[in-house]
Simulated assay, not measured.
Amino acid sequence: MALQKTLSLLLLSLLTLLGLGLVQPSYGETMHQRFLREHVDSNWTGGNNWYCNTMMQRRGMTRPRCKQLNTFIHADIGTIKNICRTPNIRCKNGRMNCHGRHVRVTECSLTASSQRKCSYQGRGRSRRVVIACQGNPPVPVRFDK
């Protein structure tokens, strides 16, 4: 009887850990936290190579590999969360939980990489971004385009 209880608790613990693993990506971040780290910088207008090289490293997108392309949104988190309240549109993956709006961004494109350094070209502009939102209330969880 004690062995059965122990095995049941072990199985329940394993299922709980698996469930958490499916919800939370690497580094113990939620999808929303990862979105904020990778795509939100309300304190800077960016737009150049120095900005991209600095931010990509600072935000952890150069290890273990250089991320090919990343977009930073230059708006406060309230403005970005409000994008989730705009009408739903189809995401690239076919789901209908995306939303769009024009904002100021910096697009960082990888130009060269070595074992020690990632080099990026930065381009600042205003454009329409599309983000996926989840939850109640909905929050941004993925940059779509």
Rank of each mutant, 00 (worst) to 15 (best):
G100T: 13
R95D: 07
V103W: 03
P64Q: 00
N53V: 03
R65P: 00
N48L: 00
N88G: 01
C98G: 05
Q4F: 08
T30P: 07
N88A: 12
T106Y: 02
N93M: 08
A75Q: 15
M56H: 05
C118Q: 06
Q33A: 13
S42Q: 13
R65K: 12
Q134S: 14
K117G: 00
G100Y: 07
M96A: 06
G124Y: 00
Q4Y: 11
C52Q: 02
K67R: 14
T45G: 11
C133N: 02
L15A: 11
V105H: 00
R101K: 15
R85D: 08
S114V: 03
P25N: 10
Q4P: 00
T79L: 07
H99Q: 05
L7Y: 11
R128F: 07
P138Q: 09
V141K: 05
G78Y: 08
A132K: 13
V23R: 12
G122P: 02
P64K: 04
V40Q: 12
L15P: 10
R65G: 00
I77L: 15
V141F: 06
A112P: 00
R59Q: 15
R123V: 02
M61D: 07
L7V: 13
I73Q: 02
G21Q: 12
P87H: 03
F143R: 10
W44P: 01
V23Y: 09
N43K: 15
R128Y: 08
E29Q: 15
I89Q: 14
R85A: 11
G78I: 06
C118A: 04
V139F: 07
R34S: 09
S13R: 08
V23T: 09
A2P: 05
M1V: 10
G135H: 06
G124K: 02
T86N: 14
R37T: 11
V23N: 00
L15Q: 10
G60P: 12
V141L: 07
R34H: 11
E107R: 06
S113P: 02
R63A: 08
F72V: 07
L20G: 13
C118E: 03
N43F: 09
I77H: 05
Q115C: 05
G135I: 04
I80K: 04
N88E: 09
K117L: 13
M61C: 05
V40H: 08
P138S: 13
M56I: 02
R59E: 07
K81P: 02
H32N: 13
L20Y: 14
D41T: 10
T79E: 09
V103S: 01
M1N: 11
Q24V: 13
D76L: 02
E29W: 15
I77T: 11
